[in-house]
């Protein structure tokens, strides 16, 4: 379970161009469910996801992950929580060009101290499950958008995270691929993982697999 209390994020704090991106968010995200953050552009969806996934720290407020307050942890510990708990899928996928699909999937596990064989095996299993076994040794820049995203999903899963975070995951996909993607998310949820994603795509928000939609407006929760 992830709990946010009074989470505020101010960019350029104390300067003339200070910008309040999140403004006192109180939110509880249930475990083992698919939650969607919806809101217009600039409403703070991405910012909220980075705070949840421990990619950045809030300016004020608390974030608890599985009962542990993470919002004031020093960077080294935060990175540890991030690695153990979250798998992130970015809107632009952010795969490392020049590396194979398998290597990309393996990257988050490099610092964990597990052996190469162990990680490579697990990466193979994930790619297989996502229908990419055939493309495992291909360089990622040659793959199609949908394939790249599935590589990104496999990468998010390599450390077996309890929470999968995805920012606008369907923005670069056509409707067939979007439907596939939602299917994959449903599978992850059925394994007991928590899924949090942002989207302003109505097809996503209204999809039957989505358990809960949270509306954001100008950095605040909307009814």
């Amino acid at each position: 379970m992830i709990e946010l209390a009074g989470v505020t994020k101010v960019f350029h704090e104390g300067r003339h161009n200070a910008l309040v991106a999140l403004d006192g968010i109180d939110l509880t995200i249930p475990e083992g469910r698919i939650t969607v953050l919806q809101g217009p552009s600039g409403s703070g969806k991405t910012t909220l996801l980075t705070v949840i996934a421990c990619l950045s720290r809030p300016t004020a407020g608390r974030v608890r992950v599985a009962g542990e307050v993470v919002s004031n942890l020093p960077e080294a510990f935060l990175a540890d929580v991030r690695r153990r708990t979250f798998g992130v899928v970015f809107q632009q996928f952010h795969l490392v060009a020049g590396l194979s699909a398998r290597t990309n999937v393996m990257l988050p596990a490099y610092p964990t101290g597990r052996s190469h064989a162990d990680i490579a095996g697990r990466a193979g299993g994930l790619l297989d499950r996502l229908g990419l076994a055939r493309l495992a040794e291909e360089r990622v820049e040659g793959l199609s958008g949908g394939e790249q995203q599935r590589v990104a999903i496999a990468r998010a899963l390599i450390n077996d995270p309890r929470v999968v975070v995805a920012d606008e995951p369907t923005a670069n996909l056509d409707s067939a691929l979007s439907a596939d993607f939602l299917g994959i998310l449903a599978g992850l949820r059925d394994e007991g993982r928590t899924v949090i994603m942002s989207s302003h795509d109505p097809r996503v928000c209204q999809a039957s697999v989505v358990d809960r939609v949270v509306h954001l407006l100008d950095g605040k929760l909307a009814a």
């Binding site: 990619l55 990175a79 952010h94």
Partner: peptide
């Protein structure tokens, strides 16, 4: 720089 950002976002820490 981008690669370092990605590595950090997917779970590497500064030390790594």
């Amino acid at each position: 720089r981008r690669e370092i950002g990605i590595l950090k976002a997917i779970g590497w820490d500064t030390r790594d």
